[in-house]
Every structure is written in C-alpha cells, then in structure tokens.
Amino acid sequence: MSVQAQVMEQMKAAMKSKDTVALEALRALKSAFLLANTSGSNVDLSSEDEIKIVQKLVKQRKDSAAIFQEQDRNDLAEPELAQAKILEQFLPEQINEEELTSAINEIISQTGASSMRDMGKVMGIASKQLAGKADGKAISTIVKQLLS
C-alpha cells in the first residue's frame, strides 16, 4: 500500500475518532502530495518522492517546535511535536547512531576520503544510500566527525 493510501486510511480513522491533531497533520500531508502530483509532470509520485515529502513535513514541524521552545511557547511547540510524531509513522524505520557511523565509515573507506575536502563526495553517496533511514543533519554531523 502506498503512503498516500495509508494517509487516506489514517485520515478516515482520525475523523471517526475526532483526533484533531492527527487530522491536521494528515491533511497537511495529503495537501503536499496533491501539490506534488499537480506540479507539472503527469507522472505519479514514486515511493521515494513520497518519503521525501513526509521527511520535509516532519522537519518543518520539528524546526517550528524548536523555535517555539526557544521562545518559551510550549503551548505552540507541543502540537507541532505531536504532528511530527504522527507523520513519522509513514517513514521507514530510522537507523541508530551506531549503525549510521558504521555505514558512513564504510562509505569513507570505499571512496578513499581522508580530509574535509572529500566531505562533498562522501555526503553525496551517504545521502543516496541512507535516504529515508537517517536525517541529513545527522549524516552531516557524523561525516564531519569522521573526516576531521
């Protein structure tokens, strides 16, 4: 079942249970899918594209929550974090830091990278291999640690 079909099923369940936070998050996701579907190309979204859209929305929610928390507005941060948690269920299981470090070490050894000058090469490969499984910021942080 595609992510879009799962979103529709979850929306129906949220409407029946009157879960407004889940409904708001799912409607935003459905809207993003519709926008991407109608943005010019007549090709349906691939599963990778769907995952990228979900990741983008989760990141937006988490960034907004971080800003609200900096401003001591927990009343606004909590719904954002709740929506991010609901959207994360549509992402593949995230790998932990230990697995991420070993995967990046393997990429570094394959490419022969030895300094920060090679970071772009390593990041390009790592981003493709670990797409959907790890956050880009986490990948970048570990690559910097290993190359410096």
Rank of each mutant, 00 (worst) to 15 (best):
M11L: 15
K12P: 02
K12Y: 08
M15A: 12
K18M: 15
D19H: 08
D19W: 03
D19L: 02
V21G: 02
V21A: 09
V21H: 02
A22S: 14
E24M: 08
A25L: 00
L26R: 02
L26N: 01
R27A: 15
R27M: 14
A28H: 09
L29W: 00
K30L: 13
A32G: 02
F33G: 00
L35E: 15
L35K: 13
A36M: 03
A36T: 04
N37E: 11
T38L: 10
T38I: 09
G40I: 06
V43T: 15
V43I: 13
L45T: 04
S47I: 11
S47H: 14
S47A: 15
S47F: 04
E48I: 14
D49H: 09
D49G: 12
E50W: 03
E50S: 11
E50A: 10
I51P: 00
K52I: 05
Q55Y: 01
K56S: 09
K56L: 09
K59R: 13
K59L: 12
Q60N: 11
R61N: 09
D63V: 07
D63F: 03
R73F: 03
N74H: 13
L76C: 07
A77I: 02
P79V: 09
L81Q: 07
A84K: 00
K85H: 06
I86L: 00
I86D: 00
Q89V: 03
Q89T: 08
F90Y: 06
Q94L: 09
Q94I: 06
N96L: 09
E97H: 11
E97V: 10
E98I: 10
E98T: 12
E99N: 15
L100A: 05
T101K: 15
T101D: 13
I104C: 05
S115M: 08
D118E: 14
M119K: 15
G120Y: 08
G120P: 04
G120L: 05
G120Q: 03
G120N: 10
M123G: 01
G124P: 03
I125W: 06
I125V: 15
A126I: 08
A126D: 04
A126R: 01
S127D: 12
Q129M: 07
Q129L: 10
L130W: 01
K133E: 05
K133G: 02
A134N: 04
A134P: 02
D135Y: 03
K137E: 07
K137G: 03
S140W: 06
T141E: 13
T141W: 01
T141S: 13
